[in-house]
Design a protein around this nucleic acid. Structure first.
Lengths: 132, 132
DNA sequence: AACAATACGGATAAATTTATCCCTATATGA
DNA sequence: TCATATAGGGATAAATTTATCCGTATTGTT
């Protein structure tokens, strides 16, 4: 049974075998964790989120927010004003993720020197010889 | 400056702006967190890992293990015996991830009912009308 | 009048990730 | 002798994700 996801009809079924599979289904997306984090920090409007994460295209931002909504991690409130105003908020379910995301963020900050080193090393080792 | 990664010459540069970017660079891969977790649980040989995660192709398993190694999260030990024997172990750096992964795993288990519901709902809502 | 800000989505292209298929090697057991 | 287990890589295809470009609308500002 095909289904549309991310504006795309998926060909394969998801794996829902273990807890980590389930988490992956809802959090595996390049910007999702960051979106949850910024919403938690109070950046609720799409344009604010876009400014916080300039690297994401506005299109993908919308898609990932939509999926977070479908997965009941955030709510979307539309204010009938002009110009349009939309706000995202964490649901209670979404809020249960915050301690986890916080620990991920902390780990990244604590090890940022080492992380940068290994990431850049990995690239350096894999640069195409022609370009060195 | 192009670089090869995942047997593929990347066209865009990675984002290394914040802690979450850095974590993403080393953990963003469909099976990486599970690989770290199973190695932590004592399944060290590639063939064991393959059995724990039948859904991953052997090829991709090797590639993701290689990257975990490049990122200094695991070590790879080759025993010069026949048939070949290889063992992966977490490095000290890799071990610092365990509490985080544990909390992810716990969250997934604690909320598995809700997760399954929202994941399946999301699919149901997005099934192509033709197939319903 | 022209333009920016707000928010959203369709069509499509590009990038990236993951999978499939096939190959190398050696030792052991049926 | 033939299958199996072990470990791994090259070439390529398929799937999936992400980005780009364009269009819709309204209000207020220059």
């Amino acid at each position: 049974m095909p289904y549309i996801c991310n504006m795309y009809e998926r060909k394969t079924l998801p794996h829902l075998n273990c807890g980590l599979d389930l988490v992956g289904e809802v959090l595996y997306g390049k910007w999702k964790i960051r979106l949850l984090w910024f919403i938690y920090e109070g950046h609720k409007r799409p344009s604010e989120l876009q400014r916080q994460i300039p690297d994401v295209s506005r299109r993908v931002l919308n898609i990932q927010l939509k999926e977070l909504g479908d997965h009941e991690l955030v709510t979307r409130t539309i204010y009938p004003v002009m110009p349009p105003k939309v706000e995202y908020d964490l649901t209670d379910f979404g809020k249960t993720l915050i301690p986890m995301i916080h620990s991920i963020d902390l780990w990244g900050d604590e090890h940022q020197e080492q992380l940068k080193r290994v990431i850049l090393n990995h690239y350096a080792e894999n640069v195409t010889p022609l370009e060195q």
